[in-house]
Nucleic acid binder design. Structure first.
Length: 277
DNA sequence: AAGCCTACCTGTTGGC
DNA sequence: TGCCAACAGGTAGGCT
């Protein structure tokens, strides 16, 4: 579920319930996920007004006057809006119960593998962008800061394969394992190409592919948004648009040659050897 | 500085 | 049917 588009779709889904709402209750059902939950979270948040939501890379942000709640979905996390009476299930670890004009609503974090995180950043420690987990992240791919020139400039001494450089997230954020394969296919770049050997013209294609594919995925994931308050949890529609991801052995949608799979840094990469050089 | 590897977890799948 | 290994959307932190 959670690469940048899925996190953004999640944010769009919960924002209407959260903006201007007041925290009614905070429920922690275990002591933490990847890191311990802040144990004083209920005290910190109870009766506080939620100012708005945000996102930095794959980190979901919920803004308060006195600080910011940081949520990461890890590999298997998702957030849904449920009725507070809805019984918690095995992997429901964290609830933010808010009072809205439509009564109480619960924003519930579910995460079977528990690689996710819930953290608190107090404004006494500065803006949330200065948080140790956020301050070294690359640029946002859907802003003007991101460009072919930025990719080109930042990769001049990077000998690693472009797929792994994209995944590293220190140059551009939000491109996870699925979208890295998809974007490189769209750009016609072989995933093993050393990042520093790619020229500006090819980075123009890659930057364009990243912008277009992430934006399209958000739009298509957005079509499940209306189900967010239900118990649904259907995946977004973007997976129907995959050109290479999870298509090993199937014909390329462009040239009909067989899609191949390889391993890079213990992660699967999918590509078309004809379309990507 | 860059890059490789391990670790954190549970659930699902595919081979035998 | 059962068992076991391999694998799954992320990424910090430790080591070369």
């Amino acid at each position: 579920m959670p690469e940048l588009p899925e996190v953004e779709v999640t944010r769009l889904g919960i924002a209407p319930y959260l903006e201007g709402a007041k925290v009614h209750n905070v429920i922690l059902r275990r002591s933490g996920l990847r890191w311990p939950f802040p144990p004083d979270l209920p005290t910190l948040l109870n009766q506080r007004l939620i100012r708005g939501t945000g996102r930095r890379g794959k980190y979901l942000l919920i803004h308060f006057d006195h600080g910011c709640l940081i949520i990461h979905l890890g590999m298997s996390g998702h957030v849904r809006v449920v009725n507070p009476a809805h019984p918690a299930e095995k992997h429901d670890h964290f609830d933010l119960v808010v009072s809205t004009s439509n009564g109480l609503q619960t924003v519930r974090l579910t995460d079977p593998r528990r690689f996710g995180a819930v953290l608190w950043h107090s404004h006494t420690e500065g803006e949330v962008e200065a948080h140790p987990l956020l301050c070294k992240l690359g640029v946002e791919p859907l802003t003007a800061q991101f460009s072919a020139h930025w990719l080109y400039q930042q990769t001049r001494s990077r000998n690693a394969a472009i797929k792994q450089v994209l995944l590293a997230g220190d140059i551009v954020v939000g491109v996870g394992n699925i979208y890295a394969s998809e974007c490189l296919f769209r750009a016609g770049i072989h995933p093993k190409t050393a990042a520093k050997r790619i020229g500006l013209a090819r980075y123009e294609r890659l930057a364009q592919a990243i912008r277009e594919i992430l934006a399209a995925a958000i739009t298509q994931g957005g079509s499940t948004l209306r189900d967010f308050s239900g118990a649904d949890g259907r995946p977004g529609y973007f997976q129907q648009s995959y050109f290479v991801y999870d298509r090993t052995g199937l014909p390329c949608r462009v040239c009909d040659s067989i899609i191949r799979q390889l391993k890079q840094g213990q992660r699967s990469t999918f590509f078309c050897a004809m379309c990507q050089k």
